Simulated assay, not measured.
Amino acid sequence: MEAKQYHNPDKIYLSVKTVFYREGGLEPISFLWEDGQEYEISKVTDIRRAASLKAGGTGIRYTCKVHNREVYLFLEEDRWFMERRD
């Protein structure tokens, strides 16, 4: 039996460039948006386990600064996603 794929228009899966530190841990440094534009993350201000209330799903939420805006980037098991903004 084939599993159904659920498409959530509020959840955007992204390619993310990440630094893995030899002491342990990781930090996202940039991501590719749906249109292929790469955005640099200037700073990660918070890292915590959290749920995405808009898009659904849980994981590690990275609060990031991108062009002086605060955005949430989620690591859900082995995939990165962001919530679509209105």
Rank of each mutant, 00 (worst) to 15 (best):
E34N: 12
R79P: 00
I29H: 04
I47W: 00
S15W: 06
I29N: 03
T58P: 07
V16I: 08
A55H: 07
A50P: 00
F74K: 02
F20S: 03
V19S: 08
E76C: 07
R61N: 08
E77L: 10
L73V: 05
D86V: 09
D46C: 03
H7G: 10
T63G: 01
A55F: 10
K54N: 12
Y72H: 12
I47P: 01
P9H: 13
L14R: 00
K54L: 12
K11L: 04
L73D: 00
I47E: 01
A51I: 09
C64T: 11
Y72D: 15
T45L: 09
A50C: 03
G57P: 03
Y39C: 04
W80L: 09
I12R: 01
W80P: 03
M82Q: 07
G57W: 00
H67D: 15
L14V: 05
M1T: 13
D86R: 14
F74H: 05
G56W: 05
Y39V: 02
L14D: 00
R84E: 12
F74A: 05
M82F: 08
D86H: 11
D10Y: 11
Y6I: 14
G56T: 04
N68W: 11
F31R: 00
K11N: 01
D10K: 15
N68G: 06
S52R: 04
D46V: 04
K4G: 08
G25S: 07
R22F: 08
M82V: 11
M1E: 14
V66A: 03
W80Q: 06
E40N: 10
T18D: 01
L32D: 12
V66I: 15
E2Q: 12
V44M: 02
I41L: 08
E34V: 14
